[in-house]
Amino acid sequence: MPAFSLDPPQSAWCAELRALAAERLRPLAEKGEPGHVNRALVAELGQLGLLERLFTSGAVDLCLMRESLAHACTEAETALALQGLGAHPVHAHGTPAQRERWLPRVADGTAIAAFALSEPAAGSDAAALELRAEAGASEPVAEPDGGTRWRLTGEKCWISNAPEADFYTVFARTTPGAGARGVTAFLVPADRPGLTGTGLDMLSPHPIGTLSFDAVPVTADDVLGEVDRGFRVAMGTLNLFRPSVGAFAVGMAQAALDATLAHTDQREAFGGKLKDLQSVAHQVAEMALRTEAARLMVYAAATAYDERAADVPKRAAMAKLLATETAQYVVDQAVQLHGARALRRGHLLEHLYREVRAPRIYEGASEVQRGIIAKELYATREAAQ
């Protein structure tokens, strides 16, 4: 795997994205209501052409977008990422009719997408999900036209953009007792009868909610990919987005580091600048070291994805794990070096301190990433014997 570095066009594009985020996206984000979809912000992302790039770019470009936007406007970054997460299964596995109906609207910011995998009793252990896809008995019922229909019954929880999304990529159990092999992915429009939801009041400012399925009808036309192979749809999506969660984290870490450099260079304490205290200088150096190490791992994983390398699951898990844990550390140290001012409502670091915690949990908690890494390492060893 070659070492990663930005070429001049990439550097210029990242600078442009940071400027757009600060000048055009942040004002819209500040007008949004915490816990609710900011449709004006999503529409602006579409107007700028960034949402369309979710379907035309590779993993490296996705990471560049997420890191650059996160540096200046975490709300814009998250809005873009959630559109991609919810719509990628449609892009990668949808039928021509599904793609034609939804992807243009996602790209222009007029349709809100959501990825509905987690459940009250199936978060980290996604293969244990219990949302049922059934028709009377456990078997689907053939329709007169030769198609198949099911009824979805159960709950989803911790779903970003719920309950305000326009459609959901929903993972349901079509074969009881089959674990990961009995799950099917469905594209479910929000207006289907029997589908309701409730918002949750969370620490993170972006919308998160629950979904209730009361015999929600779906047919073979709503299946994404193949019946009973939906877990592949989920894991394929997560393998793409996990490195980019790391890019989001790196963007936040860099913003915290930049703020700390400015503060310690100006703040007078103990007869001099804070930066002149060895303990402070060494701490800033450690923050920079960890941020750059995380950045390199994120882009190595993204490059591996774009090159279709065999070890993508391991690299994606490593990138998400290192970057999110690093961002938590860097933001925490930045708060410590800023002192009480960083805890005041509205301060950049107060905002980042709330934002940085959730990525260590969603799309696979840090403990899950460690499990994936270990599993892949032992599998590689066994294959070599």
Rank of each mutant, 00 (worst) to 15 (best):
G194T: 03
G209E: 03
V188H: 09
T175E: 14
A165N: 09
P193C: 04
L200D: 13
F171Q: 01
V188W: 09
V170C: 10
T174F: 00
S204R: 07
G182Y: 00
P193A: 09
D201T: 14
R192E: 14
V218A: 10
A180F: 08
I208K: 06
D222V: 06
F167C: 04
P176T: 05
G177W: 07
T174M: 01
G177P: 02
R173S: 09
D201E: 15
D214C: 07
G177R: 05
D214R: 15
L211E: 02
G177Q: 06
L211P: 08
V223L: 03
T198N: 12
D222T: 04
R181Y: 00
A165C: 08
A190Q: 10
R181A: 15
L203Q: 13
A180G: 05
T169M: 08
D222F: 05
P193I: 08
D201F: 06
H206E: 11
P189Q: 07
G199V: 13
T210Q: 12
T210A: 11
G179C: 07
T184W: 06
T219K: 07
T196M: 12
T175I: 02
T174Q: 00
P193L: 08
L195F: 06
G177Y: 01
F171P: 01
T184E: 04
D191Y: 04
T174L: 01
Y168D: 11
L195K: 11
I208E: 08
T198Q: 15
A190L: 00
D222K: 12
P193H: 10
G199A: 15
F167K: 08
T196V: 14
L224R: 02
F213I: 03
L224I: 08
A165T: 07
D221L: 09
A172S: 15
G177L: 09
V170W: 00
V218L: 13
T196P: 11
A172T: 09
G179Y: 01
L203I: 12
R192V: 12
P207G: 03
S204V: 14
V223P: 12
G225P: 09
H206F: 13
A180P: 06
A172H: 04
L200N: 14
A190Y: 13
D214P: 07
T198W: 00
R173T: 06
G179Q: 03
D166E: 10
D221Q: 15
D166S: 13
H206I: 13
A185D: 02
T198E: 15
T196C: 00
L211K: 08
L195C: 13
T175Y: 00
H206L: 13
T175M: 10
A220F: 00
T184P: 07
D201C: 02
T175D: 04
P217V: 03
L187D: 04
A180H: 05
P207Q: 08
G182H: 01
M202L: 13
L211N: 03
P176A: 06
I208G: 00
A178V: 01
P205K: 08
P189V: 01
T219N: 10
F171R: 02
P176W: 10
D214Y: 01
T198V: 15
